[in-house]
Simulated scan of single mutants.
Amino acid sequence: MVIAHRYRLEKPLGRGGMGVVWEALDTSLDRKVAVKGLLYPGMAPVTRAQWVSRARREAQAIARIEHQNVVAVHDVIEDGEQVWIVMELLNSRSLADLLSEQQQLTVPHTARIGLQVLRGLKAVHEAGVVHRDVKPHNILFRPDGRALLMDFGIATFEGAVQVTRTHELIGTAQYLAPELLGPAPDGSRAATAASDLWALGITLYEMVEGRRPFEGLTDLEVLVAVRESPVPPMKYAGPLSPLIEALLRKDPARRPDAAEAEQLLQAVTLDSLALDTAVGPGPGPGPVPGHAAGAGSGTD
Rank of each mutant, 00 (worst) to 15 (best):
A4W: 06
L9D: 10
L13N: 04
G14C: 11
R15G: 02
G17R: 11
A24R: 13
L25T: 03
D26V: 00
S28L: 14
A34Y: 09
K36I: 00
G37Q: 12
L39G: 02
G42F: 05
A44F: 10
T47N: 15
R48W: 13
R48D: 09
A49K: 14
Q50P: 00
Q50S: 14
R54E: 12
I62W: 10
I62E: 03
R64Q: 10
E66R: 15
E66Q: 13
H67I: 06
H67T: 02
N69K: 09
A72T: 11
D75I: 02
V76K: 07
E78N: 06
E81S: 03
Q82K: 08
Q82L: 12
I85W: 07
N91G: 11
S92L: 02
R93L: 01
A96Q: 13
D97N: 14
D97Y: 11
D97F: 08
P108Q: 04
G114Q: 10
L115Q: 02
V117D: 01
R119N: 09
G120Y: 08
V124R: 14
H125D: 02
G128K: 08
V129A: 00
V130S: 05
R132L: 04
D133R: 13
V134I: 14
N138I: 04
F141P: 05
R146H: 05
R146A: 09
L149R: 06
L149Q: 03
M150C: 12
M150V: 15
I154Y: 15
T156F: 12
G159H: 13
R165I: 00
T166E: 15
T166I: 15
E168W: 15
L169R: 14
L169K: 13
Y175L: 00
Y175V: 08
P185H: 11
G187C: 02
S188K: 14
A194Y: 12
S195I: 00
I202D: 04
V208I: 00
G210H: 13
G210C: 07
F214K: 04
E215L: 08
L217V: 13
T218L: 06
E221V: 07
V222Q: 07
L223Y: 07
L223W: 05
R227E: 14
E228M: 11
M234L: 05
P239V: 04
P242Q: 07
P242E: 10
I244D: 00
I244F: 04
I244Y: 09
A246Y: 07
L247P: 01
K250W: 11
P252K: 14
R255Y: 10
D257I: 03
A258Y: 12
A259H: 06
E260H: 06
A267G: 00
A267H: 13
T269F: 15
L270P: 00
S272P: 01
S272K: 08
L273H: 11
L275V: 06
V279I: 05
G282H: 03
P285W: 12
P287N: 10
P289Y: 03
G294L: 06
S297L: 07
